[in-house]
């Protein structure tokens, strides 16, 4: 536990030095805030664009608060996922390449402690950033559109957190066996995208898989309660995360033996 604390502390210091502690929350906040605000200004934007013929009448229905928040989540699902992968791709690879990993493991440090300190730090950082941005998006939605109840926001928040943790775990998993950060980003995005695509390719199976998380969160926002498949999706996601973590630790142990 002592070693874990030391490594954990080191991770935060490093995140501060890289300014990840600042830019990651800022970028995620930007991505989430842009959705409600741009939806709010959509009529004005359309009015001022010159590409419309004179006399054209566009009537946009005002979206409900739940729809706006769901849009925010789907925005995060595309851009946010890419940002998370980019933010996580360097953590192990860079240390391996500049030799500090060798130095670290010449001391009595357990690979499990090492991986878990990194994982915990990344999860806390991303979930913190997501909490701030989702809260801000909720505030804006309530102010500009209709009110969304706290229970549905809270439930969708918890459901979507699992997706973020999954993306982080996949990226860390890939970075334990690749040596280039570009490769890590590519493969991780490929894996995450194929998980997401499953819901359109095999809809029957995918309702039980993590690919359904976004749909679930949207549904919870709209109806305040999840479908029957909610438990199954959450269970498979957690199982998936656990399996990835275990194999990652095993694999990493082998790769750092000299």
């Amino acid at each position: 536990m002592k070693r874990f604390n030391a490594l954990f502390h080191k991770e935060w210091i490093e995140a501060w030095r890289e300014k990840k502690l600042v830019w990651l929350p800022a970028v995620i906040l930007l991505v989430t805030l842009l959705q409600p605000i741009s939806l709010y200004f959509m009529p004005t934007i359309l009015e001022n664009s010159n590409s419309l013929p004179p006399g054209a009448v566009i009537e946009l229905p005002i979206p409900s608060g739940a729809e706006v928040l769901a849009g925010t989540l789907s925005q995060l699902h595309t851009i946010g996922t890419a940002i998370i992968v980019l933010a996580c791709m360097n953590v192990i690879v860079q240390e391996r390449n500049n030799g500090s990993l060798m130095q670290l493991f010449s001391r009595p440090v357990n690979t499990t402690t090492y991986i878990f300190s990194k994982w915990t730090m990344l999860v806390l950082l991303h979930l913190g950033a997501f909490t701030i941005s989702y809260g801000a998006a909720w505030y804006y939605t309530n102010a500009l559109f209709s009110d969304v109840s706290f229970t549905s926001v809270w439930k969708s928040f918890v459901i979507y957190c699992l997706w973020i943790v999954l993306v982080i775990t996949v990226t860390l998993f890939v970075s334990t066996f690749l040596r280039r950060s570009g490769g890590v980003a590519g493969i991780s995005i490929l894996i995450v995208a194929s998980i997401a695509i499953l819901s359109t390719v095999m809809p029957d199976i995918a309702i039980y898989l993590p690919s359904n998380i976004l749909n679930l969160a949207t549904e919870v926002l709209n109806t305040e309660k999840g479908t029957v498949h909610m438990g199954a999706v959450l269970a498979t996601t957690i199982a998936f995360i656990a399996i990835l973590l275990l194999t990652m630790v095993k694999k990493f142990e082998k790769s750092v033996k000299f």
């Binding site: 890289e18 300014k19 830019w23 970028v27 940002i83 980019l86 933010a87 360097n90 500049n98």
Partner: peptide, 10 residues
């Protein structure tokens, strides 16, 4: 973002 992700040398 590009600078933070790929521009820094650790």
């Amino acid at each position: 973002i590009l600078y933070f992700v790929i521009g820094q040398r650790k």
